[in-house]
Nucleic acid binder design. Structure first.
Lengths: 193, 193
DNA sequence: AACGTAGCGGAGGGGTGCCTCCGGTTGCAA
DNA sequence: TTGCAACCGGAGGCACCCCTCCGCTACGTT
């Protein structure tokens, strides 16, 4: 399958020698931090600095800016997509909502990153596929159980939820209230409380 | 009232001499364009270039980057807030939805701008007040008519709608579908179709 | 322990953007 | 028409960033 290959490819790009591997990991971590703070336009030198690594090391591991984006992104997606499996035993609607909450945490800081990648990265498309493969069954299950409205596509839901979460909320209570309003709209009309 | 003063102040800052005024207007127009395309990090020199004006002229009119943001922003807000008055004769729910659609058009390209401004601008706070003054009565009217759920604040609604619209939708049909889901969640449970 | 090599760091050239400053230009009032 | 004040443009200094290159370091193997 092409999409799994893409993700594995990025994963396999990691260096083998112990010191190199340490630097690689530090760079990914620093990049997650800095991209989260400054958006996709963040300075690569700042990332190297924050990782305690020379700029040359950054460029050896990630020759193009896009390579770094991809590596960070793949890391997030792996975790998110894995988390869908844990939810199989929950009731359909609860499982969907729980997963969407995790999705929210993932998408929160990565919006800028995604917007950068969406334009011209094969890997990004693979990540999208991966996420959809994880989340779509949850929606379908909820629809089949009559808990979610049948006319919503998974893409609709992703946009609904990720859009709302793009802004930072001063207090989590409001964030949950707004998300609840949106999810009420997603419930099946007949199942509405 | 402090908020009205703030907006008027920015408005009054416009130059009087004919040529200066022309340049000022060209700069605002160019800035709207360029910010829309490149986000808030856009190059000021690009804006001056696009306006057909020297960089010095830009800095004379807008000594700090923030000043330019504010001027552009105030321009948008004036139009949006004025548009709420036209809707007074529509049914409560329809009026709210119609205004939110206009709000969406306004917020679409200006998200980056708003995020920049939100941190440290008195004028931005005034604009917020202005928008809320225009939109909040529409929500309250809908709530009093039993069409909108009573536990939603206007701030909730703004975040709900503006978040969703922050992403560009490849086709308007999907945008409307997603917005419809969200607005369904906003309706009063008893009034739900 | 000794060695070959993968990996390291950061100096430096090129580019771009920010902002200041000042000699030249032009609208407008008299 | 004339004069002057307001206004103009862009050169240039400074800062930051991107990316390459190469002499040095230290990991892992034998």
């Amino acid at each position: 399958m092409a999409s799994a290959d893409q993700l594995g490819e990025v994963f396999a790009r990691r260096p083998k020698r112990a010191d190199a591997r340490r630097n690689y990991d530090a760079l990914i971590a620093a990049a997650q931090e800095v991209f989260g703070e400054c958006g996709a336009g963040a300075s690569l030198e700042e990332i190297a600095r924050r990782a305690g690594v020379g700029i040359g090391t950054l460029y050896r591991n990630f020759p193009k800016r896009l390579d770094l984006f991809e590596a960070v992104y793949v890391e997030e997606v792996r975790a998110l997509s894995a988390s869908a499996a844990d939810l199989a035993d929950r009731p359909p609607w609860d499982a969907l909502v729980a997963w969407l909450h995790r999705f929210v945490a993932y998408v929160g800081t990565k919006r800028a990153l995604a917007e950068e990648l969406v334009h011209d990265s094969e890997v990004f498309r693979s990540c999208r596929t991966e996420i959809y493969a994880a989340g779509e069954p949850l929606l379908r299950r909820a629809q089949e159980a009559g808990a979610a409205r049948p006319d919503a596509t998974f893409d609709d839901v992703v946009r609904l939820v990720s859009g709302i979460m793009a802004y930072q909320f001063p207090e989590p209570a409001q964030r949950d209230r707004v998300l609840a309003i949106a999810l009420d709209g997603l419930r099946h009309p007949a199942a509405q409380r």
